[in-house]
């Protein structure tokens, strides 16, 4: 899994590529924690190049969503691939997260 992070004004953009399993989710978790502790509460996670996610990844995303919401922020997911989307659908995560197909739309949602 690869991780990249960019900021744009008060927005944080996390770009994730590859597979989020119980091992790589630890890296994503520590990155999200450090971004949130820097008081960035409006986050976009670009997942268009994520082709695998297990429950460990879901847990990290859910914890991130709860933390941003607690601080009047939001966490928007971008570009879920069909099989990843299916994992979100069957676990009920689709109704918890705001999702869109590209980063521009996500930025609009967070304005």
């Amino acid at each position: 899994m690869e991780l990249d992070f960019k900021t744009k004004r008060d927005l944080g953009l996390v770009i994730v590529k590859g597979k989020i399993d119980a091992n790589t989710a630890l890296d994503l978790e520590s990155r999200l924690n450090s971004i949130i502790s820097d008081k960035k509460f409006k986050l976009i996670i670009d997942m268009k190049d994520v082709d695998f996610i297990s429950s460990a990844g879901l847990r990290v995303l859910l914890a991130g969503l709860k933390e941003t919401k607690k601080n009047d922020g939001e966490l928007v997911l971008v570009g879920l691939q069909p099989q990843v989307k299916e994992v979100f659908d069957i676990t009920g995560f689709t109704s918890l997260f705001k999702c869109c197909s590209n980063v521009k739309d996500a930025e609009k949602m967070l304005k």
Binding site: S55, A56, R59, T91, G92, S95, L96
Partner: peptide, 16 residues
């Protein structure tokens, strides 16, 4: 189906 505030973190692995 629990809303976010009641959604527990965990138990999803076996569910999947």
């Amino acid at each position: 189906k629990a809303p976010l505030e009641k959604r527990k973190i965990g138990g999803l692995g076996i569910f999947l």
